[in-house]
Write a protein that binds this DNA or RNA. Structure first.
Length: 502
RNA sequence: GACCGGUUCGUCUAGGGGUUAGGACACCGCCCUUUCACGGCGGCAACACGGGUUCAAAUCCCGUACCGGUUACCA
């Protein structure tokens, strides 16, 4: 039988980092075994589901390049099937109508309310004490025919237990007594999650359900539904959860943008790098390798390598340089500086375009220069954004001067205000006679430095600040050459940075 | 509260009876150097606790603590 897995997000927000990892693991598993990776949008919560959210999730998956097979299934389209499954169980006596009026929602926090009620019921709650559980079929039918509203609940047996062998957590068992007669169909005819999931997974012929550990206990309820429906349950594999630095829940509300996939796309992350990072959050191939191509991940992925303990997504809200997990940033930088240049260029181009720094010549006459420049400056960059921010001076005359750089490299050496324009004149004179190459530049700058009786670093760093606006970057000789003679002369003579501090 | 699960450096993790408990990120130091967030070398830093079992326990068993999940006519 072909392996079929699915990623089934509910469209109530953007693609969360935890969901993204669930999607990735499903994808990797499917590709590893040569199976199908399906997508199902669980949009049955009409009140909270939005089309915008669906689009955002699809965008996130597309960005991560997790292509699904077959048509996307929208759970809401299957509501009739879910209802008929509930009616079938009702007809077979495996479910019953519950005429208890629907409880009014309390104004307090839902979760708290549930926990509180459970605590109050402590020791006295019998999961089988519903007065309608054993109502005769005739009476039940009569009341329903009379128009009395009812929910349909699964009739869970009194004695026994559910059991399944989770591919990650091992054998899981639960006494029936700990599971209530769960509602299958709401009194307004709306199918509930557990029923819908089971019906759809059956319909889609899902063989492996790989999802968050928050569903581990729900699984027992779903097993009960599978059994009532007479279908063999699929294999389950539950994933450890991704937590906030305080080991609490990672939520949009509390943590904002850091948990959204689109944030990473917009912040200049490479999908390959982020995927790599995500893959290592809760899974390991049992070796010391850290950088994996998609192909390697697919080849090495296994359910056995998934961990059982939750992982912390380690970001620092107060530190802008560590706004997200250190390792994710490091990995992105690692990809940027080590991936084949030709693979990187297609990502740099749109970044420069967005920043209005792109020129068609870079694809044409100046392609050689462009490639060398990108290769030169990528060494110290973390994200694609750096190409248009820190790298701006390589592509435009309109760039800012970093205050700290100006302070450190210019203000401290007032002589530079006349020396650097002087160096520009020297360049102008010298490079009329000889070629503007790193080697020749070095000779000229060195002799200029000696004449002034200063240190090479003073001249170089002053020039760096004027030429690039920042204090960090590649070898200055390479920078001089890359910026080009004409612009170098112009920038060395410019008083803009000096005027700004005056 | 009940049920279920988890616990190795700050973080991600390797290791599943005998290891100087390994790697990565972060951090610190040194080197390279005209700067640096590149690179090289090095350092700091962990088996939650208590009992067992065993010649031997991070590893197996039990308990405790702590953390997490679930406990809806949400998904």
């Amino acid at each position: 039988m072909t392996t079929r897995v699915r990623f089934a997000p509910s469209p109530t927000g953007y693609l969360h980092i935890g969901s993204a990892r669930t999607a990735l693991f499903n994808y990797l598993y499917a590709r590893h075994v040569g199976g199908k990776f399906l997508l199902r949008i669980e949009d049955t919560d009409i009140a909270r589901s939005t089309e915008e959210s669906t689009r955002s999730i699809l965008d996130g998956l597309a960005w991560l390049e997790l292509e699904h097979d077959e048509e996307i299934v929208f759970q809401s389209d299957n509501a009739d099937k879910h209802r008929s499954a509930a009616r079938k169980l009702l007809a077979e006596g495996k479910a019953y109508r519950d005429f208890t009026p629907k409880a009014e929602p309390t104004d307090q926090n839902v979760k708290e309310g549930i926990a509180e009620r459970a605590r109050a019921n402590q020791g006295v709650k019998n999961m089988r004490d519903n007065p309608y559980r054993d109502l005769s079929a005739n009476e039940s039918d009569a009341r329903a025919a009379a128009g009395e509203p009812f929910a349909i609940r699964l009739k869970v047996a009194e004695h026994g237990r559910t059991a399944f062998d989770d591919a990650v957590y091992g054998i899981q068992e639960r006494e029936y007594a700990d599971t209530e007669d769960l509602v299958l169909l709401r009194s307004d005819g709306h199918p509930l999650y557990n029923l819908a999931v089971v019906c759809d997974d059956i319909e889609m012929q899902i063989t492996h359900v790989i999802r968050g550990q928050d569903h581990l206990t729900n699984t027992h309820k779903q097993i009960l539904i599978y059994e009532a429906l007479g279908v063999t349950p699929p294999t389950f594999a539950h994933l450890p959860l991704i937590m906030a630095p305080n080991k609490g829940k990672l939520s949009k509300r509390k943590h904002g943008e850091v948990v959204s996939m689109t944030t990473y796309r917009d912040a200049g992350f490479l999908a390959a790098a982020f995927r790599n990072f995500l893959a290592l959050l809760g899974w390991s191939a049992g070796e010391e390798q850290e950088i994996y191509s998609l192909e390697e991940l697919i080849q090495k992925f296994s359910l056995e390598g998934i961990h059982r303990s939750n992982a912390v997504f380690n970001f620092h809200e107060s530190d802008p340089r560590k706004w997200t997990d250190d390792k994710a940033i490091w990995m992105n930088a690692e990809y940027i500086r080590t991936m084949p240049l030709e693979d990187l260029l297609p990502f740099v181009k749109p970044e420069l375009k967005t920043a209005k720094l792109w020129r068609e010549e870079y694809d044409d006459d100046e392609r050689g220069w462009f490639e060398r420049t990108i290769d030169l400056i990528r060494q110290r960059f973390f994200t694609l954004k750096d190409f248009s921010a820190q790298g701006r001076a390589y592509f435009s005359e309109d760039y800012d001067f970093d205050a700290a750089a100006v302070e450190k490299n210019l203000v401290k050496f007032p002589d530079l205000r006349s020396w650097l324009p002087e160096l520009a004149d020297r360049f102008e004179a010298e490079f009329e006679k000889q070629r503007y190459t790193e080697e020749n530049i070095e000779t000229v700058v060195k002799s200029f430095t000696e004449e002034k009786g200063t240190k090479l670093g003073v001249i170089m760093n002053g020039a760096r600040t004027l030429l690039t606006g920042v204090a960090v970057g590649p070898s200055m000789l390479a920078v001089f050459e890359t910026i080009g003679l004409e612009k170098t002369i112009m920038r060395l003579k410019s008083q803009v940075a000096w005027n700004a501090v005056a």
